[in-house]
Design a protein around this nucleic acid. Structure first.
Lengths: 208, 208
DNA sequence: CGTATCCTACCGACCGGTCGGTAGGTCGGC
DNA sequence: GCCGACCTACCGACCGGTCGGTAGGATACG
């Protein structure tokens, strides 16, 4: 099964690479089949290892899922949140956040993010709470931005929580329908969604 | 286990009620635990039956899931789509659709709809295709409405597909965060989302 | 009316298979 | 010679699903 030609043994130096490889492969498989339908056998086979070989590196399936999600949050926070949190102007900050978030899930398409969206209920207790706390931080960041936008007189009277969750819904739904290489490029989609959220679908009273 | 006081036997006439009860209970359990984590034993226990007793009424776990989703689609089409498809004015039709859809998932909160959103990947082949076809019908209906809105000169230049999926994202994300009895009533949420989608968050050039 | 017959709804026991996880050994590089 | 990486072999639990059997209401017949 796994046998056949004996491949060369890994040296010690490759340890961190092995860890990353396991995270990446498991993320792909959990993403394709779903966490519960994917067995640790599936993961180990995809890695060219046995199940026990994988369990040498991880403690449990649930902890592997947590590690994947935590890495997904790392990615998001590094590539989006920290890039925009310094922007002073709330409108520019919102635009950059939306654009960065959309491009992250369409262009880079990290499987870890999809896993976060789809399998959050599979985590229990402490692990679940830690991921949820990081999600909540993002929501508070969005709400703060919408509040500043209103205080600056630029925004209409919109509820910051509703606006935040509406924006999150738009973005987090993308992986359900958008396929790269289609009619719209990733940038076009990002711009279209920003336009929609900021201006709405109707013409203003001046143009109508 | 199931034993104890022997309850009265059901007569033939109650058959359709039993079927509905199984659908409803299974929907609740699949919704709470997730389709894969929920066992048929969980479902049968919740019904006060044995596993074999449940399998007297259904053919397989997957077919049970399909029946739940099909019933959810029935509910949605009956309570939303058919109520609004006759409305001539596209703006009014869009408003009514959004309002109806939001109120369905916030006030009635049918577990079947949540199952449709969360477990669509668990279905394979023919079953999956049938549910997807009904979803696609709804998307086409939305796109048509956005196109009419643009043709009537009311809408800004927005991509009908992007607008449809953005709207779907907003609505289908609601179950992830909205809890009834909170700060916003169901009607307030529906109105706020309609306002957001139609007008956007920014003030028009006239008011700014 | 009585009763033989049929059928629906259901149960207890069980099956083959798969799951997450582990104990203990082997092998190769330092 | 030690240690980390990995494998073979295996475990107990549980899964979806089935089977033979049965209680008892509905029905047909006398």
């Amino acid at each position: 099964m796994t046998g056949g030609a004996r491949v060369r043994r890994r040296t010690r130096k490759e340890r961190p690479a092995r860890q990353a490889q396991i995270l990446e492969t498991a993320a792909r498989i959990f993403c394709e089949k779903g966490f519960d339908r994917a067995s640790m056998g599936d993961v180990s086979t995809a890695l060219g290892l046995t199940k026990a070989g994988v369990y040498h590196h991880i403690r449990s399936k649930e902890e592997l899922l947590y590690a994947i999600m935590a890495y997904g949050m790392d990615l998001f926070e590094e590539k989006v949140l920290t890039q925009v949190s310094g922007i002073e102007d709330p409108l520019e900050r919102l635009r950059a956040t939306l654009r960065g978030h959309v491009l992250l899930v369409t262009r880079d398409r990290p499987k870890e993010i999809t896993v976060i969206l789809h399998e959050s209920n599979a985590l229990k207790g402490r692990f679940r709470e830690r991921i949820n706390a990081r999600k909540r931080r993002y929501v508070r960041f969005l709400e703060k931005t919408f509040r500043e936008l209103a205080r600056g007189g630029l925004a209409r009277k919109v509820d910051p929580a509703v606006a935040s969750f509406a924006m999150l819904g738009m973005i987090n739904w993308i992986y359900q329908w958008y396929r790269p290489g289609g009619r719209l490029s990733e940038e076009q989609l990002a711009d279209a969604l920003a336009d929609l959220l900021l201006q709405g679908v109707l013409k203003g009273p001046a143009e109508a």
